Amino acid sequence: MMRTLYTDNQIFIPIISDYGFKITFGNEGHTLFLRKALQAFIKSDIPIKEIQFDKNTFEGITQDGRSGIFDLACTDEAGNHFIVEMQYGEAPDFVQRMKFYALHKFNAMVKKGKFDYGLLTKIYCIAILANNILPYPQFHTLANLRNEQGELFDEQLTFITIELDKFTIQASDCQTDLEKLIYTMKTYSSYSIP
């Protein structure tokens, strides 16, 4: 079911709108919000000190290959790549789209000739979805490649899904930076000036 994003009495642009997302997360002049948000999304205690914005468009690898545009692409000071996508509408196959984006970035990191695969940095593919797509009850899902016993096999590619509809925590109960961020993203446009 598609929801209405804007109402006549709103005074702030929703962060989860296309424009709100790009202006909030993609502010190249002031990256503190983005750095803190990425740190919260990946649940890392290590601060991200610098962000370099990357080209957010890419060409297909083959003549018939699909091109694409990331909502946001950036790299931190350690060389870790972040792809962030905001999806307001229905997205039943979004996991496949996340894999497409992450694997395209992975392919672009591997160079011709003698190449040391041990030098590959991490890729975090982050999807912020207004609707639910996963069968899990939690609003934040972090996924890596695991074996049949559920043990970590590789963490070079990390897929993070935030499903806003599943987030029901009230402001007074928000404890972590992630909870505070998601609460703000969901409620910011409903604030009013007294």
Rank of each mutant, 00 (worst) to 15 (best):
Y188D: 07
D116F: 10
T161F: 14
I169N: 04
P135Y: 06
L103M: 09
L142W: 07
P137D: 09
T121L: 07
A78G: 00
A171E: 14
L120D: 01
E148P: 11
Q156V: 15
Q149I: 11
Y124R: 05
L181T: 06
A102T: 08
L134V: 04
L157Y: 04
V95L: 11
E90P: 15
N132M: 10
R146A: 11
F159I: 02
A78M: 10
K122C: 04
A130I: 01
L134D: 00
I182L: 05
L178R: 08
Q138G: 07
G118S: 11
L181G: 01
I123N: 00
N144Y: 12
G150A: 09
Q96I: 02
Y136N: 13
L152V: 06
D165G: 13
K99H: 07
E155L: 00
F82C: 06
L157R: 02
N147W: 13
N107A: 12
Y117P: 03
Y88I: 08
Y88R: 05
P92T: 04
T121E: 10
V110W: 12
I126F: 12
E179F: 06
Y101D: 06
Y188H: 13
A91G: 15
L157N: 05
K180C: 04
F82Y: 14
D76N: 10
I160S: 04
L103I: 03
A130D: 03
Q156R: 11
A102P: 08
F94W: 15
D93M: 14
L164H: 02
L178C: 10
Y117Q: 08
G118C: 13
T187E: 13
F115I: 13
K111S: 15
M86P: 05
E151A: 08
N80T: 02
Q175E: 15
K166A: 09
